[in-house]
Simulated assay, not measured.
Amino acid sequence: MTESRGLVLIVEDERHISDVQRLYLTREGFGVHVEADGAAGLAAARRMHPVAIVLDIGLPGMDGIAFCRALRDAGDWTPVLLVTARGEEADRILGLELGADDYLTKPFSPRELVARVKTVLRRAAGPPGAPPGSTGRLSVDPVSRTVRRDGEPVELTATEFNLLSHLLRHTGQVFTREQLLAQVWGYPGYRDTRMVDVFVSQVRAKLGDASPIRTVRGVGYSATAPGP
């Protein structure tokens, strides 16, 4: 028997979609639990502590945006993969700003869904190599995956932490958005570079003027070298 990869919670109100998602994730060794509305899904997340959540935005009752906000406000940083319709770009960006880790746009291949779930779990486990213990006013702990600014804890999602850590491990090096998508997200050749900008913005907002991330106009992003 294949060892379980952990429980994935699917929150999706379209039965034919959730059935396919369940089938493919189960084949890959994941346990799967499905809920059809946001409130029940949120209760299940709190009760079952899944390793990842596949979350549709267009849910009855509590939609995916409210779900994500409630989850993060409660300090739950379980990786969330948003599922959106093509016309929901604004909601998709808002979901990322609220702490979602990734998204898929309908229609999508169930194999891509499985690949994305595996990828967000790898990111949650952390990249190889340890980031600096401190840089200027920041303290970064690679073991607990925590960040402190001036001694105060800063809550970062797994993806935000990995982005910051990657840039800090290569201070002074400039990365294009495409390079960051390949090296942090694990999506070589992915075209939607807007996601990088959203996550950089989120990290900067949380770190304030202690953020080491700098924009290199016309190229991408870099991190400044550690200061005193």
Rank of each mutant, 00 (worst) to 15 (best):
123 R>N: 00
108 F>K: 05
116 R>I: 00
115 A>W: 08
99 G>C: 07
98 L>G: 14
111 R>C: 02
131 P>M: 02
100 A>V: 06
124 A>E: 08
104 L>T: 07
108 F>W: 04
127 P>A: 12
106 K>F: 00
91 D>V: 02
107 P>L: 00
112 E>L: 14
113 L>E: 06
107 P>S: 01
102 D>W: 00
119 T>A: 11
117 V>E: 11
122 R>D: 08
107 P>Y: 00
128 P>C: 08
103 Y>I: 04
94 L>V: 13
105 T>C: 04
129 G>C: 06
114 V>W: 12
94 L>R: 09
102 D>S: 01
131 P>A: 01
103 Y>R: 03
92 R>C: 13
111 R>S: 01
111 R>N: 05
91 D>S: 11
121 L>F: 07
120 V>A: 04
130 A>S: 10
126 G>C: 04
130 A>T: 15
122 R>V: 09
104 L>S: 05
104 L>I: 10
111 R>D: 03
109 S>D: 14
108 F>C: 04
97 E>H: 14
93 I>N: 14
103 Y>F: 13
103 Y>Q: 05
97 E>K: 14
117 V>Q: 10
126 G>K: 02
98 L>S: 14
112 E>H: 13
131 P>H: 06
108 F>R: 06
125 A>R: 10
95 G>M: 11
99 G>R: 05
121 L>Y: 06
115 A>P: 12
98 L>A: 15
129 G>A: 08
95 G>H: 05
113 L>T: 10
119 T>W: 07
97 E>Q: 15
100 A>D: 04
106 K>H: 00
118 K>P: 09
124 A>C: 13
130 A>P: 03
91 D>M: 11
114 V>K: 07
104 L>W: 04
97 E>F: 12
108 F>E: 05
109 S>K: 08
117 V>G: 14
120 V>N: 05
98 L>R: 15
124 A>M: 11
122 R>W: 07
94 L>I: 12
102 D>K: 01
126 G>W: 00
91 D>Q: 12
91 D>G: 13
94 L>C: 12
105 T>M: 01
107 P>R: 02
104 L>C: 08
107 P>I: 00
96 L>Q: 12
106 K>R: 13
92 R>N: 10
116 R>P: 00
122 R>T: 06
127 P>M: 06
131 P>E: 01
96 L>A: 13
107 P>T: 05
105 T>R: 02
97 E>T: 15
127 P>L: 10
95 G>S: 13
105 T>L: 01
122 R>A: 11
116 R>K: 06
126 G>E: 01
129 G>R: 04
117 V>P: 11
122 R>Y: 07
97 E>L: 14
106 K>Y: 01
121 L>H: 05
116 R>F: 03
129 G>M: 08
97 E>G: 15
93 I>Y: 15
101 D>L: 04
117 V>A: 12
130 A>Y: 10
118 K>W: 09
123 R>K: 00
124 A>H: 02
123 R>P: 03
102 D>P: 03
130 A>D: 13
103 Y>W: 09
127 P>C: 06
120 V>Q: 02
93 I>Q: 15
96 L>H: 13
126 G>L: 02
108 F>A: 03
115 A>N: 03
94 L>K: 09
92 R>E: 12
112 E>Y: 14
99 G>I: 04
101 D>C: 11
121 L>T: 00
93 I>H: 15
120 V>K: 03
104 L>K: 05
